[in-house]
């Protein structure tokens, strides 16, 4: 028999196995907590902080990594929670290229969708200098990297290193200079990338998209 804990989420009672995250428990109740860095196929990392919820303690808790506890009373959508999510969205939108490669083509940019949900139309913050060696890297035969649209959610990195075991992607640099990188921070097309497409499939923004979607030929076709 599995040990369980009982708690309430938005005043609905739920009983889940010990170790279940608040995010997963909420989903089982049909409550969708917004998140950009988490995907159900992956180990949660809790870096975008969009999934924060109020558990009554001093700080909001990232629900994708926070295990449920007995007797917890969780609020996923309070004014305090929404206010802080709006600020996070403003911070992310500050240097976001509008509308971005994903929204302009397949129209499924998760950051912009969330911003619309939260009524965040503009940011009070200014764009900062690009942290990557070049803002746009179209050296790969298949995938275009737009660093300005990258929110460092880590999905591509987990996709590359943990799901596909291709072991190509990392975060390079530190602090505001952090950016996604391939091998020793070389252009994607010069790296050991095998163009499997996992990174562009899991990317929630316009940072990693297919070349063909924005008017560039897939390079392999050119060669034929």
């Amino acid at each position: 028999m599995t040990d369980t804990v009982s708690l309430t989420i938005d005043d609905q009672a739920v009983e889940v196995p010990v170790g279940t995250t608040i995010w997963d428990a909420a989903r089982s109740l049909g409550i969708d907590i917004p998140v950009l860095c988490h995907s159900t196929r992956m180990r949660p990392v809790g870096v975008c902080r969009m999934c924060v919820v109020d558990t009554g303690v001093r700080n909001l808790q990232a629900s994708c990594v926070r295990p449920c506890e007995e007797g917890m009373a969780v609020y996923t959508d309070s004014e305090k929670v929404r206010r802080n999510r709006r600020m996070l969205l403003e911070l992310l939108l500050a240097d976001y290229p509008a509308p971005g490669n994903r929204e302009a083509t397949t129209g499924d940019d998760e950051l912009l969708a969330l911003a619309r949900d939260y009524g965040v139309e503009h940011s009070r913050f200014q764009a900062s200098a690009s942290a990557a060696p070049a803002p746009v890297d179209d050296s790969s035969p298949v995938i275009v990297v737009d660093h300005a649209a990258c929110i460092l959610c880590d999905r591509c990195i987990r996709g590359c290193d943990e799901l596909q075991h291709n072991d190509v992607m990392t975060r390079s640099g530190k602090g505001a200079a952090t950016h996604i990188a391939f091998d020793l921070d070389v252009p994607m097309g010069e790296s050991t990338c095998v163009a499997c497409g996992e990174c562009q499939a899991v990317c929630p923004t316009g940072a990693l998209t297919n070349r063909s979607l924005h008017g560039l030929h897939v390079l392999a076709e050119d060669r034929e």
């Binding site: 975008c48 902080r49 911070l91 992310l92 913050f125 530190k174 602090g175 505001a176 952090t178």
Partner: peptide, 22 residues
Amino acid sequence: FRNESCGKCVPCRTGSAQAVSK
């Protein structure tokens, strides 16, 4: 704090840099 931020989470990485520039 901006100089020493590790860059892992959104609020610290972007917020500390935005605060300094303002």
